[in-house]
């Protein structure tokens, strides 16, 4: 077996039936995930759907109530420190210690991460406005994220977990962030798990997508398989009437007519009733999850 195929056969994360409750609120309700190397998986859900809880549970940052979980072959509830040698994490808000100077933070990160590459960090930071003698609290939110990403790019992490990493950043920063991610991090041995509710922003990056609602996976699919499974039909009222018996997931009126989204209906069959397209992730998200919210 070649190195790559060996890597591909080994899941970085295997989660089965994860459950997590906060008092009477069930945040995760049978969450499943199988994350292979080389994948960029989008965990997409509305606010309160359990994305952050899922991430924290996967990383061993909070205890699960039930379910089986291994990350890089270990249970993160017991071996988080070991796992974190190969896993990097950026949370939804700035979590870098605000009291620290950037230079001190870099030194600490280097001292705690066995695979830290300072030359790589220097190269990444050179393209930013982050000053090393500044305190973290003096950095803008954009610079904060840039610094955190630079730190993470400097370690040889096999798994990068991003929880709404661009929340509150402007469009230019977002673009830079994702460019850096794709160009400098992603390769066939590494995976990215990213949560967001801004579906359009990451649609083009993803190899897999998971829609989460009320703590459950409502859809888990490779983005390459979307075209073969889901169809968006734009039809006039008569075409829509003819299509409704095929059980559309979703229906809405638009300027172009009536839009219906179908799961598993042959595209040829729908083509006779109107214009057919592959729905984008935002449309599919609304179709799959919207009705449950």
């Amino acid at each position: 077996m070649s190195d790559i195929s060996e890597l591909e056969s080994t899941s970085l994360i295997q989660a089965r039936g994860l459950e997590k409750s906060f008092r009477d609120v069930r945040a995760l309700d049978g969450f499943d995930l199988d994350l292979k190397p080389g994948r960029i998986v989008g965990l997409i859900g509305p606010n309160g759907s359990g994305k952050t809880t899922a991430i924290k549970t996967l990383l061993g940052l909070c205890r699960r109530n039930a379910g089986e979980l291994t990350v890089l072959g270990r249970d993160p509830a017991d071996g988080r420190a070991r796992i974190m040698q190969q896993v990097a994490y950026i949370a939804d808000t700035g979590i870098l210690p605000r009291w620290m100077k950037v230079a001190d933070l870099i030194d600490c990160f280097e001292g705690l991460h066995p695979s830290f590459d300072r030359a790589r960090l220097d190269a990444t930071l050179a393209d930013t406005d982050v000053r090393r003698n500044a305190k973290v609290q003096a950095l803008s939110k954009g610079m904060n994220v840039q610094l955190h990403l630079a730190l993470i790019l400097a370690i040889d992490a096999r798994l990068l977990v991003l929880d709404e990493p661009t929340l509150g950043l402007d469009q230019i920063f977002r673009q830079k962030f994702y460019n850096l991610l794709v160009n400098d991090y992603a390769n066939e041995a590494r995976s990215i798990l990213i949560t967001t509710h801004e579906v359009r922003e990451i649609e083009h990056l993803l190899t897999d997508v998971i829609f989460l609602s009320h703590g459950r996976c409502r859809l888990s699919i490779e983005t390459a398989a979307l075209e073969g499974r889901f169809t968006k039909l734009v039809a006039d009222p008569a075409g829509a009437d003819a299509a409704r018996p095929l059980n559309p997931l979703f229906e809405q009126r638009s300027l172009q007519g009536v839009e219906l989204i179908f799961d598993g209906v042959p595209r040829d069959q729908l083509a006779a009733l109107g214009d057919v397209h592959t729905p984008n992730l935002a449309e599919l998200f609304v179709a799959v999850v919207g009705g449950r919210e």
């Binding site: 420190a81 974190m84 040698q85 994490y89 949370a91 979590i95 870098l96 990160f109 705690l112 991460h113």
Partner: peptide
């Protein structure tokens, strides 16, 4: 969350 994301 940052400190716990380190291998310590």
């Amino acid at each position: 969350l940052f400190w716990k994301s380190l291998p310590v």
